[in-house]
Write a protein that binds this DNA or RNA. Structure first.
Lengths: 219, 219
DNA sequence: CAATGTGAAAGCCTTCACAGCG
DNA sequence: CGCTGTGAAGGCTTTCACATTG
């Protein structure tokens, strides 16, 4: 009874982002052996309304029991299936600089169903060094590796000036999804999934909030 | 004519996020000595419409010249002022593990007007080690440091299980803005500015896109 | 003439409110 | 009785279209 695969179009982007937050919260609740939860309580924990939670979930199926709420372990499974993290996925890292090294060793990063398959860099100074369980390979081998292994995901942790041509290369090699850490928007075919993480942008947003919260009416 | 400080309430959150993207793009254009740009072209570069760009900017003042567009260097100054990154700011890092170390050495991170003032950790194994120019200080000294120096921003790069009480501590000590890397939502007084960066969430969003893009009508 | 700034219209997302169900 | 699932209402954001400007 996994089914309920319906049309994924027309689902609000913000709703999909909240799904990840629900999952994170519910995984915490499982640790505490919590069996069921109402939409209202789950919402409160994250700063949303109960109606928001219910609406988000019903985009994908009917997972709750009237009068009871949602079964926590069941909802966790459903959310993993919806988000696609129920199957393990291989991922390659390109860029073995400071940030790349941190990503490899950051234990929280690759926990949820992601396996690091290889690490690449174009700098001769780091090629051959080991990072965790991986030896850094020359960037020239990316194409061969991707086509041989069929890996579909790549983390790009290279300088902003290098990332656009590199992204085009990995897409040509067969990569279908990119998590980009360079502070630059990638322009790629729309069939490629791209998520960007720019730490400078996050800091700016923080400082903006800091400057104007005092003037804001929100108590 | 810098003025034009108007009411910051009632400005859409998405608009403020786009401001950071405009700034990033314009900083790139300055490198290329680009003098002026139209809302339409700036929008195209980032995947937005010209109308969107103009509406976002007019929330904060009138920065363009009809028939010409926007002066790139002037708009950069204005955006920095609006976002609050025109003045240098000190920031402390708490958590000297893998992620914390990467944040310190990630050159792109602290470039835009941010100065790392100190690094703290509670683990005796890392206290006293040097990270970049900084010696890791014991977490017990956070309160004294914050009150003496008046630093207002903190990066939290500690495990999820430790972050909530730590956040409460730094807020009590005087910190007003937090960039949280732990995969946990912080519940703090609403006067505190909090931005969260959860890498696992970003990966989930990527995998979701990967699974369903093919079914989507978007060409 | 080209491009801004801006009311008005359209579209999207969230919240409401309640029928229905276990 | 409590809580889900869901049309309808409401509110917020984006897009349109054009008067205005140097």
């Amino acid at each position: 009874m996994a089914g309920a695969d319906r049309d994924r179009s027309g689902i609000p982007d913000p709703a999909v982002r909240r799904l990840s937050l629900y999952l994170r919260e519910l995984e915490g609740l499982i640790e505490e052996d919590r069996r069921t939860i109402s939409s209202r309580e789950l919402g409160m924990l994250l700063g949303f309304t109960g109606a928001q939670v219910r609406k988000d979930l019903t985009h994908f199926g009917q997972f709750g029991q009237p009068g009871v709420g949602y079964q926590v372990p069941d909802l966790v499974s459903q959310l993993r299936r919806i988000l696609g993290t129920d199957k393990r996925r291989r991922i390659i890292l390109i860029g073995a600089g400071n940030l790349g090294r941190a990503l490899v060793s950051y234990s929280g990063f690759l926990r949820k169903g992601f396996d690091l398959a290889a690490v690449f860099d174009r700098d001769v100074a780091v090629i051959g060094l080991t990072m965790g369980e991986h030896m850094v390979r020359p960037a020239t081998e990316i194409e061969e590796f991707v086509s041989k292994t069929g890996v579909r995901l790549a983390l790009l942790a290279v300088p902003a000036g290098e990332v656009q041509p590199l992204a085009e290369r990995v897409v040509a090699a067969g990569i279908e999804g990119i998590l980009n850490f360079a502070p630059k928007r990638l322009r790629l075919d729309s069939s490629v999934a791209v998520v960007g993480v720019d730490l400078a942008v996050q800091l700016e947003q923080l400082v903006y909030q800091l400057n104007w919260e005092q003037a804001s009416p929100r108590g």
